[in-house]
Each structure stands twice: as C-alpha cells, then as structure tokens.
Design a protein around this nucleic acid. Sequence first.
DNA 1: CTGTTAGCGCTTTCAC
DNA 2: GTGAAAGCGCTAACAG
Lengths: 331, 331
Amino acid sequence: MPTSMKDIARVAGVTESTVSRALANSPRVNADTSMRIRRIAREMGYVPSAIARGLATRRTSTLGVVVMEPFEAFTADMVNAINRTASDHGYSVILSVCGPDPEREMNAIRLLLEQRVDAIVVPDPLVADSSLPQLQQIGVPVILLNRGAYTFSVGTDNLDGARQAVEHLLELAHRRIAYIGGTRSPDENTQRQEGYLRAMSAWGVPADPSLLVVGDGWPAGGKSCMEQLLALDERPTAVFCFNDLVASGALQAIHNAGLRVPQDISVVGFDDSSLAPCLVPPLTTFAQPKETMARMALRIALDLLDGYDASARIILSGKLIVRESTTRCSP
Amino acid sequence: MPTSMKDIARVAGVTESTVSRALANSPRVNADTSMRIRRIAREMGYVPSAIARGLATRRTSTLGVVVMEPFEAFTADMVNAINRTASDHGYSVILSVCGPDPEREMNAIRLLLEQRVDAIVVPDPLVADSSLPQLQQIGVPVILLNRGAYTFSVGTDNLDGARQAVEHLLELAHRRIAYIGGTRSPDENTQRQEGYLRAMSAWGVPADPSLLVVGDGWPAGGKSCMEQLLALDERPTAVFCFNDLVASGALQAIHNAGLRVPQDISVVGFDDSSLAPCLVPPLTTFAQPKETMARMALRIALDLLDGYDASARIILSGKLIVRESTTRCSP
DNA sequence: CTGTTAGCGCTTTCAC
DNA sequence: GTGAAAGCGCTAACAG
C-alpha cells in the first residue's frame, strides 16, 4: 500500500488534518512543522491520491475528451491542444475513444461521467441535433467543437474559411475551381460548400455543378472524387477540399493521372493538420485556430464549473496557410 | 448532486449493501428485488462513481498512457491500439502528455500515479537507461514499448524489420541503398542501421559510408538528409528511412529535385503509420505489429496486477507493406 | 496554529 | 437473502 496522510501524520506526530494543510501549503500551519511534514512526506515517497481527494472535494481536476477513432490528423492535433491547456490549468485528461457511431459516443460520455470528470470536451461530435438538449442536462459541462447548433460550443468560421481558401485560388486567376466535400460532418460540409459558392459568385464566376463533388471525408473518398473530376471534359485547374485527408487523396489521384501539383492543378485543404506539411507538395490549407479553440473550450467549462452562465456559441476565425500546392493558373 | 446508492436504497427500501450487490448482479440477492433495484437505479439516472469504487477496491480499472508531444503518426496509432484493447478489458485510458524531455516524462508518470491508475504504458519512452530500475519500484506496473533494456517491455524486431526493408530493395536490384537515420531514438536507430548493414553485407554489397546519414527523426531532418544524398556524385537509387516521417521529408526533397518516386529513387519507411498510405506515392513501409504490441503490453500489466511474475522482454516481428514508393532499379 | 469530527460513495466482511 | 458496520484516503467545517 502506498503511504497515506495517516502514515505521515503518525510519523510526524500530528493529525491528518495538519498533514493535509501542510501539504496544501496552507499558511495556517506553523512554518517549521509544515516544512518538517513535507520533508517526511517526501522521504516516505508519498503520492497523494487524486481519487480520494476527488471523493472529498467532488472535483477531480480531470477533463474528459471524447474522440472518434481513428485519430485522424485534426483530431489528434486538437487532443494535443486540449491537453496542453488542460495541464496548464492543473487538469488531467481522460481519453475516451468511440467509433464513428453516435451511440458509442454517448457511451463514451457515460464512461467519463463514471470517472466523475469535471467537464467533457468533444472535438469531433457526431451526436444528432435532436440529442443536443440532453447533453446540457447531463450534470457536467459538455463542450462541443465545431457544432454551432449547441449552446456550449466553439468552432471555426467555416464559411469564411472556405471563402479565404477559394479567394486565394481566384486571386491566382483560377476560375474552374472544384470543391470536394465530405459527408462525415454534414454541417461543416454544408458551410464550407456555401463559402465556396459565395466566393465564386462574389467574383462573378458562375458555379458549374459538375465541379461540386462529395466524398466521405477520408483519403479514399478524396481520391475517387478527384478521379471523377479529372475525367471531366474540361477539368478544373484548382480544387478546394473538405479537409487535408481528402486533399491527400486528391493529390494521389492527380499524381496517378500523370499531372503535377501545382503546375497543372492547385490544391487547397482545410484544417492545417499535421499531415499538411508532410505531403508532397506541402499543402496550402486553411488553419483552424486549434490552440484558441482548446483554450476557449476550457474557459467555458471552467466558468460553468464556477457557476457562471457561460452559454456561448463561439465562432473563431482562422487563416490560410499558403504552402506549395497552389500557384497561378497557367492556361 | 448525482444520485448515489444511498438514494436508491432509500427509494427501494433496502440497504446500500443490497443495492451494491444488486447492481453488481450478485446471485446472493433475491431476483425480484434485484430487478426492482436496477429499475429504480435506471429511473433515477444513476451513474456509478468510479472513483468511489476505486477508493474502496483499490483498483481503478484505469490505464495510464504517457506519450510524447507532439503526437506523431506512430504514437497516435499506438494510443489507438492501446485504447482499443484497454476498453475490451473494461479499462479506461488516462492520457498524460509530456514534452520531449525525460524529466517531464517522469512527471507525467507521477501524475498518473496520483490518479491511481492500475498500470502505465509508455509507447515512446525516453527515460534514460539508468532510471530504468526505478520504474520497477514505482508501485504499479510500468510497461515500455520498444525498449529492450527494460524488464517489462514489448517491442518490434528492429533488426529484422530493417533487414526486410533493405532486402526488398536488394531484390528489386538496388545496390546503392542509403539509410537515413534518426537520433530521436538512439537505440532503435542503431538497431535499424545495424539491420541495414547486415542485409547489405549478407548480399555482398559493400557499404558506402557516404550513404549512411543521420537526421533528427522528423520530416525536416529527412528532407535535409535526402538533399545531402542527392548532392552526392553517385546518388543512391533507393533509401531506407528511420520512420515514415523521415520518409515524407525525403519524398519532398526528391520531388523538389525534380526526380520521381519510385522511377528514379525508391523509398522505404518504417512504422506503417497512418501517414504512409496518404503520401504521394503511397509509402512502402515496415509495419510494426501495433495491435499485438498493445495486447501484449496489457497482458503483461494485467498479469502483474494479478500477482504473476510477468517479467518479459517481448520482441515481435512485423512485416513489410509494399505500396508504390518502391520499384525495380532501372539503371 | 492544531485537533476533532464528519462525511465523500462505494465495497466487503461478518452477523443474522 | 439482507443488514450493520467498518473503512478506502482525503478534505472541511467547527472548535479550541
């Protein structure tokens, strides 16, 4: 058995309470005794029990994060960012992985509730809109990322992100610009597509329906969509992709067709996941402000825990990262 | 406050003990009462408290995982695999992220100990050999991955992996084969390099020292190493890389030089991380048996918890995944 | 400044 | 088959 406060108390010849205070650096305990107690604790290899403390204080300083398997680039980055901010605030992170299934997602949340996490963050939520209200009744703050329909959410401005991406291409003189969507997140897809359409029309470029294709949001889908686009009589000179994974699939298809990026076709992704700079060529992509999102999410959670009303649907703006997958349209 | 067993007991007109038993499906409680209790629990929205149970049983059914930030592909995959097996065994996973610094790694472990995790797994350990013994004295099982020097470890046969990779290239008639190492994991690097050298000598191919370069184990390092190799008077026709990240950097350098993969140069990676199939072209790479590694690691941990002596340095073999980045040498 | 006391929510003997 | 009681390790009033 690991040493407990009781053990320390015995050795130090004081009560548990004093030990507790000393270890918490309470000013209400004699400086000498305090120091002595801490020394003894160290010598005895004392490791405080977070679960016992949790039981007593009804706060575990623990944050639950639900992610969908498999970790894809954006999610992994997000977990990273969340973890970083969480530990800055003295929080540990419990990871609960679920499959691509709303029911398993709910189950993952239940598991976290059993662990009595103080709050839950879901970077890639797939819960149905109809179950959203239920999430607020759950007892602990649940924050969703990129889910504007929910009261406690922080997300990226997809509309504007898509606009930035497409305008970048338009500025490079591209006109036949395609959009490869992804069904894995219908809301986000709709918004990004809308942003694409608006940018096009703002520049007076008529939208060609055949340039609007939709895959599954994974590399395979991106690849087959791109193949479809390449088979067009008049193929696009640029493509804007739902996310970086889709873009990687597109890159493969273009390469297989014997074409070059960006000379023959420019490609833009979305997310600026850790995958983006590794691709050949390094991908131009819209960066979601992941760090800020994580910080905001945690802020909402902590405010809620402190009893403040933190209802907020925060929408952050990101910025385009221009790398080497885009260039001026050369007809 | 969430409903507790006490609440249920009051409503059901029984004692807490009976509720506890009923909820645990103990046969020692009357079938009818048991069912009734479980119904009440459900109706009251009861969520058991894992931390209270943990306090009482001194088992938290919780597994700690320490990973180095940033999550790179292999680690993320490993966390996935560990999580999957863990939840198969009814375990939750607490993630503790540390920087690339042994001290912070130890700190991450401490944090997990406070949470009273039942065991700890470290997929990419960077603790010094000299601190290894300390890990065994820590109170809970600590399993390291890919760290043969440690008593409780499971890893991949790096020597054989490198051999497989290089022999694949040799069979494709390559002779000028380079190795791009990575210092981020000295042990593994040494082993993979050794495997490379042995395969070469087994085939009677004299090793050219100028074909042996070493980077940092990240894409940037891979890129600059590859540039160095391309500047050689007689450049290699194939490169074997320390890991997939390095390979992605190499791919970029080759692309920038106006050369093609695999026609001009074949490239082999290591790990078969989720990055590999996304690259252009999809990367031939040696696959570590991640699922098996996770399973074995958990098995050791559970055996240890059950009081068995599970000392074992398990070395698993993996297999080469041939994709499109390698082809026959065309002189 | 320190001790006493009472839980936090659950499990687990030991009785009945 | 069920209850009573003790305890897991810690915190937090409340006294003194």
